[in-house]
Amino acid sequence: MTDVHATDTALSGPVEIRVPADPAMSRVLRLAASGVASLCGFSVDEIEEIKIAVSEVLIALIEHGAGHHVDVSFVVEQGSFTVLGDTEVHEFDLDHPDLRLCRTVLAEVCTDHTIELIDEHARISAVLRRPFKAA
């Protein structure tokens, strides 16, 4: 029998979700991320860290973006969980104080993170790699 709870399972492709640019979507994304992470064998402490990163990515893109929706992807590879967020922007100040706070939070829970402006799209990548920082 296949063990669906095998630890450290990678996914063959990303899980992609498009949500309205609404902070209330945070809970939906957090639950989805926790479901994916659980399926791939991450522990409850690791899942809590992943959910913090997911919330931070979504909220930052909603606060600073101009799009009606945010595209979020979860990529699971051996021992790592990556959150990718993307939304349209008109003007985007990479040095905005609130973005610095976003960076502080992501630096706290993620192994690596980047915030970029590419072709009028703001993109945030947050990578959590084992051993997780705070888990």
């Binding site: 809970r27 639950l31 926790s34 479901g35 659980s38 409850v44 899942i47 809590e48």
Partner: peptide, 13 residues
């Protein structure tokens, strides 16, 4: 498993 995940999320709410 889903019930556990929902309860974990309830902690945040």
């Amino acid at each position: 498993d889903d019930a556990v995940l929902e309860a974990m999320e309830a902690n945040s709410a």
